[in-house]
């Protein structure tokens, strides 16, 4: 039995489709990522799986329980951290944790070992109001709160949105720890770079899953040669490359442009020559391996 099983789920809001025929399964103890930009349908999917919304079509089970019929059972065994979950701002760190333990009929003491690694970092501030915590600390507390009743499956909706880079890294380390203790985790994120931290990911766009695989495999399956290009005038470089007839795709990526040509066996020198003709200075160009975002872009173009 899969921990999470989704079959042909579809959902529309006022005739506008938010999810189209979504199917996938998540193994027990797997850290599964839903990767996609805003509006891809991640939140809707998570809400259907946490029994908060009813799908128009399709079925889904969590630990063997149907999300519509057995919603009461599911609500006992899952932990859910919504995207705009802001805890109770006027309650202190400890009061928040106590409250969430209480409504699940648990106590902090009995499950302390589950959250020890996370909570110990914010425990020095346990009398501070949740509203006065930094973004990173808030997310740690929120994670502690949804973990305190020892859920079998954990749903996290964009837990790292609005959190600084250091806290994001820490947060993912915590998720790995939780996964290692046998909890199934379904996490959504708009940050492509976080995909490599998942066991498997589903790349979502416009309510559809474009690809499901291990992050490494997705990268390996990237079919084209990819170049990173940089010159002194990046804006003109982008325009010029977009106007170049042999260009397949070109995207800004950090301080470089990521470039693929229409033919994979194109000679690099040809591109450099073209750029020199256009009076570009300080041309830097090298071949690189793709990352998830490149794969995402490629999949998007295919669809």
């Amino acid at each position: 039995m899969k921990s999470i099983q989704v079959n042909n789920i579809g959902k529309s809001y006022h005739q506008i489709p938010a999810l189209k025929d979504i199917s996938f399964g998540v193994e027990k103890g797997e850290l599964f990522g839903l990767i996609g930009p805003d509006g891809a349908g991640k939140t809707t999917l998570l809400r259907i799986l946490t029994t908060l919304l009813i799908a128009d079509k399709g079925t889904a089970t969590i630990e063997g329980s149907d999300v519509v019929k057995d919603y009461k059972t599911i609500r006992r065994i899952v932990g859910y951290m919504p995207g705009r979950f802001s805890l109770y701002q006027d309650l202190s760190v400890e009061e928040n944790l106590k409250f969430f333990a209480a409504i699940f009929g648990a106590t902090i003491e009995e499950n302390y070992h589950l959250i020890k690694n996370i909570y110990s970092q914010i425990e020095p501030f346990k009398t501070r109001k949740a509203g006065k915590l930094s973004g990173g600390m808030k997310q740690k507390l929120a994670l502690s709160c949804v973990m305190i009743h020892k859920p079998a499956v954990l749903f996290l909706d964009e837990p790292t949105t609005g959190v600084d880079a250091v806290s994001r890294t820490e947060f993912w380390e915590m998720l790995r720890d939780l996964k290692n203790s046998g909890i199934t985790i379904l996490v959504s994120t708009p940050y492509m770079d976080e995909a490599r931290l998942c066991d498997r990911v589903a790349l979502m766009q416009n309510g559809k899953i474009m690809n499901i695989d291990k992050p490494q495999r997705i990268i390996e399956n990237f079919s084209r040669r990819l170049c990173a290009i940089k010159t002194k005038n990046m804006y003109r470089l982008l325009k010029d490359l977009q106007g170049f007839q042999k260009t397949n795709t070109v995207y800004p990526f950090g301080e470089f442009l990521h470039y693929t040509a229409k033919e994979n066996d194109i000679d690099m020198k040809e591109i450099i020559k073209y750029l020199e003709q256009k009076d570009h200075e300080g041309i830097e160009m090298r071949e690189i391996t793709a990352n998830i975002e490149d794969c995402f872009m490629e999949l998007m173009n295919k669809n």
Partner: peptide, 12 residues
């Protein structure tokens, strides 16, 4: 505040 979602997904 979005806390109702969490309350709903609880045994309450």
């Amino acid at each position: 505040m979005g806390t109702m979602e969490v309350l709903l997904v609880s045994p309450l």
